[in-house]
Design a binder for these strands. Sequence first.
DNA 1: GTCCCGTAAG
DNA 2: CTTACTGGAC
Length: 221
Amino acid sequence: MAIVKTIYKRLLQSYGPQLWWPAETEFEVMVGAVLTQHTSWTNVEKSITSLNKKNALHIEAIMQMPETELSTLIRPSGFHRVKAKTLISLATLIHEQYDGSVEKLKKLPSNKKRIILLGVKGIGPETADDILLYALNEPCFVIDEYTKRIFKRVGKTPNNGSYNSWQKMLDKEFKGSLNEMREYHALLVVLGKNHCKSDPNCTGCPLVDICVYGSSHMSAS
DNA sequence: GTCCCGTAAG
DNA sequence: CTTACTGGAC
């Protein structure tokens, strides 16, 4: 079986369904996707909690909130000034162009949705794909640092290292349902946190035997 | 001091 | 390509 499918099966078997994204609403998924940029999820949770306490985890509240107040609320997530601008731009876009309805956004063709998201300053390809996958029901491969690191070590790398070439390579080899695409990204993140860190910990990794890096780093120890 | 589910700007 | 953006956990 092709390596990309094999890895999915292994990870699902090892870790079970992850049922991502952890959020109450689709807009909350979007907020979380922005806040978790280069930031650990535990810090994002602090921000989400603060926003919830202010009853501010919805489009109108974010849109109307003074930038300084919002940036204070999301402080634990880091890059808070930049991220506050991004969240206000995103909320304003949905409010003004789509009647404040995520459902309207969702109904647009997938390529258009992606272009719209990428048009928001502060939303790049990874965040756009997170939002497409977990908020707008659009199956796609999210290419984050974990994904690249894991597939590089396993021995599966695209011709050039661009975001698009990674995505094309993986989308081509794994045509999954929406739910499977959601699970795959979640499972790769779990593997990245548990084993495939920048300083790798191959002991107990469910992929050691099929990983180029893992195979050459387990014998000696 | 290093690492977090990055992005924009120079 | 490099650097700025930022704070919290370990």
